[in-house]
Simulated scan of single mutants.
Amino acid sequence: MEATISTGSDPILWIGTDTCALGPYRADLVETYWRWEQDPALLVGYGRQAPESLESRTEGMAHQLRGENIRFTIYDLTSGEPVPAGVATLLPDHAVRTAEYIIMLAPEARGRGLGTQATRLTLDYTFHVTNLRMVWLKVLAPNTAAIRAYEKAGFRTVGAIREASYWLGQVCDELVMDTLAKEFMGPSRVSPLLAG
């Protein structure tokens, strides 16, 4: 897939496959992002217990747009048109060239492999454009669907933070997973863009 230029309301797509693409984080989607973040399954998956108001989320958006974190809007391309389906975020530590990874998918986008594809695209961008050397994440141990998706994208479990969170009211461990640039599972979607 080649990068596309935005025309009017068409979104900008930086890199992608036939069914998934990444584009810029968008202020005009704050209400959509907020709706996804209030989904009970997402709240449980992140170990968060309280929803957030749209007003608070809107105030936080301005800070996020100015921050140093790397954020992508994930698009589902299966219908032929780019449909916003989630957000991928990297929290970089430039001193050591690493980043923490966080992904959020819309409820309707889950269970179809989109999270794995978006994660692979984010890693491709991270290792080939941002030039970070390692990406890590935390995931609640009972969240087996997320763990499988991360493993398919190239992450592996490297440890656990014991009794660090809650899953459906029960104390649980948080697993720490990571992947290195030298372990990136190709093919790269960035490399062909640079060759053309």
Rank of each mutant, 00 (worst) to 15 (best):
E2F: 07
S6H: 03
S9A: 12
I12T: 10
I15R: 01
I15N: 00
D18R: 06
T19S: 14
C20P: 03
L22C: 11
G23I: 14
P24Y: 05
P24K: 08
P24S: 08
R26C: 09
E37M: 12
D39T: 15
L42W: 15
G47T: 14
P51S: 15
E52R: 14
L54N: 02
S56D: 15
R57D: 11
R57M: 13
T58L: 14
A62F: 12
Q64R: 15
R66T: 05
G67D: 11
E68P: 02
E68W: 12
T73I: 07
I74M: 02
Y75N: 08
Y75S: 06
P84D: 06
G86M: 06
G86T: 11
A88L: 03
H94N: 15
A99W: 03
E100A: 13
M104P: 04
A106D: 13
G111N: 02
R112D: 13
R112E: 13
D124Q: 04
D124H: 00
T130N: 12
T130K: 05
R133G: 07
V135L: 00
L137R: 01
L140Q: 10
L140G: 05
L140Y: 07
P142M: 05
P142L: 01
I147T: 15
I147M: 07
R148L: 02
R148F: 09
E151V: 15
K152N: 13
R156G: 05
G159R: 13
I161Q: 11
E163M: 06
Y166V: 13
Q170T: 02
C172F: 02
D173S: 10
E174K: 01
L175G: 02
L175P: 10
V176Q: 13
A181S: 09
F184C: 00
M185E: 10
G186C: 06
G186I: 00
P187A: 12
R189N: 07
S191R: 10
L193H: 01
